[in-house]
Amino acid sequence: MSVEPYQTLGMATFEIVLLPCLADNYCVLLHDPVSGETAAIDAPQAATIKAALDARNWRLNHLFITHHHTDHTAGIAELKGHYGASVTGPEAEAERIPGLTRGVTEATQLEFAGHPIRVLETPGHTLGHVTFHLPDDGLVFTGDTLFSLGCGRIFEGDPQMMWNSVSKIAALPGDTRIYCGHEYTLGNARFAMNVELENAALKARVADVEAARTAGEATIPTTIDLEKATNPFLRPGSRMIRARLGLDGAPDWEVFARLRQLKNKA
C-alpha cells in the first residue's frame, strides 16, 4: 500500500505537513508563514524531513521530541547539525535524547512562533513521555501515548499510569485535532471492532479508515470527540465493552488494562 510522501493542510495560522517516515512513523512539520519559523514534531528520519523542508524552501528552527525511542529521535543529530535547530523534549528523558537543548515539564512556559504550547506529561509508553498541546490552534501532538483508535504499548510505566495519561489528553476540547506518531489506525480499527462491534459510530469510522488506506491516504489527524466516540481505550465505561470483558463494576483503569493486554496479543 502506497502512501503519498506528504500531506499539507492549510490553516488560518500554520501550514502543516504530515510526513510519513520509516515504515509507519509520522513527523509533522509546522510552518508559520508570518515569522517564517518551522518546527518538526519528532525526528524519525533526517533525509525525509530535509527533503520536505527543501521542497518548500523552509528552514528548520525547532524540534519538539515526545520521547526517547529511536524511531522518534534518529534524525536529531543530522537535523540539528544542518539547521542549528533547537531540540526540546522531556526533561525526565534528557540523558536518553541526544542533542536535547531544552528539557520541559508541565510547569514549562513554551511557545512556537508566538503561539503558546502547553506541555502535558503523559507517561506510560515511556516514563518521561510528553504531549505538546497548542490550545490557541486546536492542535495536540500525542507521540506514542494516544493513537487514532488506539493507544501506545506500555513499555516503562503501568496500566493505571497510561490510563491517567490518555485521560488527560481526552479532557482537551472535543474539536482538538490529534496528530500521533504512527499510522496504526487500520490495525487498531480491527481490534476495536472485536471489542465493541455494536458501536455504530465505530462501524462507520472503520469503513472510512479502510477506504482511506486503500487509497493510500493518511488516517490522521483525528479529533478528541471522534476518539471518545470510537476508540475503545477511551471507552472503558462502555457497557458493551465491560460485558464482553466480564468486568462489570471494575474501575475504568482495570478495563483499560485488560484492553491493552488483549491488544498486545492481537
Score class of each variant (00 low, 15 high):
residue 34 V to T: 14
residue 126 T to Y: 14
residue 82 H to Q: 09
residue 78 E to V: 13
residue 66 T to L: 09
residue 109 Q to K: 14
residue 142 T to V: 01
residue 141 F to R: 01
residue 106 E to N: 08
residue 108 T to A: 09
residue 100 L to N: 02
residue 121 E to V: 10
residue 126 T to I: 07
residue 69 H to L: 09
residue 72 H to K: 14
residue 44 P to R: 06
residue 60 L to K: 04
residue 83 Y to A: 04
residue 62 H to C: 04
residue 105 T to G: 12
residue 143 G to K: 02
residue 133 H to L: 01
residue 61 N to W: 02
residue 100 L to Q: 07
residue 116 P to D: 12
residue 131 T to I: 02
residue 127 L to R: 11
residue 142 T to P: 01
residue 76 I to H: 01
residue 129 H to I: 07
residue 143 G to F: 03
residue 83 Y to W: 08
residue 48 T to G: 13
residue 139 L to W: 09
residue 122 T to V: 12
residue 45 Q to N: 10
residue 89 G to A: 04
residue 78 E to T: 13
residue 69 H to A: 08
residue 128 G to L: 06
residue 49 I to A: 12
residue 66 T to I: 04
residue 142 T to M: 03
residue 53 L to S: 12
residue 121 E to H: 13
residue 88 T to D: 00
residue 128 G to K: 03
residue 98 P to M: 03
residue 106 E to A: 15
residue 61 N to Y: 04
residue 76 I to S: 00
residue 90 P to M: 07
residue 100 L to K: 00
residue 37 E to R: 14
residue 134 L to I: 05
residue 134 L to K: 00
residue 121 E to I: 05
residue 53 L to N: 13
residue 99 G to W: 06
residue 52 A to D: 15
residue 42 D to I: 04
residue 93 E to D: 08
residue 64 F to K: 05
residue 53 L to R: 15
residue 103 G to A: 07
residue 123 P to W: 00
residue 41 I to Y: 15
residue 36 G to W: 09
residue 81 G to K: 01
residue 123 P to Q: 11
residue 108 T to P: 08
residue 137 D to F: 00
residue 111 E to L: 04
